[in-house]
């Protein structure tokens, strides 16, 4: 069981955390919504929950609840840029199908 970060993603998360001035790490998760079943969640973390699993990669703490981990195991978080757009991208091996824009998916 593991979640990894690309160099670029690690650096970005660190920078956003620094800018924010507080928070212990970044939470990745899934929730059931969106047009294709499930959607990714990315949030800053100020407080750990009981069912949280914490991964440490490249000096960044990635926090995931056990339920989400099932759908996200093996995911590499990347940061990409495309034209004017930039942001985080989930490279999730569990995905079977996703909606056109990639914001939601099914496992």
């Amino acid at each position: 069981m593991a979640i990894t970060l690309s160099d670029m993603a690690a650096e970005r998360v660190r920078r956003f955390l620094d800018n924010r001035g507080s928070g212990i790490g970044v939470r990745l998760g899934v929730k059931t919504s969106g047009c294709s079943g499930m959607a990714y969640v990315m949030e800053f973390v100020d407080q750990l929950n009981e069912d949280d699993v914490v991964f440490d990669d490249k000096g960044v703490k990635v926090i995931i609840d056990e339920k989400s981990l099932v759908c996200l195991d093996g995911t590499e978080l990347d940061y990409a840029r495309e034209g004017l757009n930039e942001g985080f991208v989930f490279n999730n091996p569990n995905v079977k199908d996703q909606c056109g824009c990639g914001e939601s998916f099914t496992v």
Partner: peptide, 17 residues
């Protein structure tokens, strides 16, 4: 490709919203 941004705790939006 969908690009995600980090949200404040408990405030991540549903997709397309």
């Amino acid at each position: 490709m969908a690009f995600l941004q980090i949200a404040e705790p408990g405030q991540s939006d549903a997709p397309h919203e």
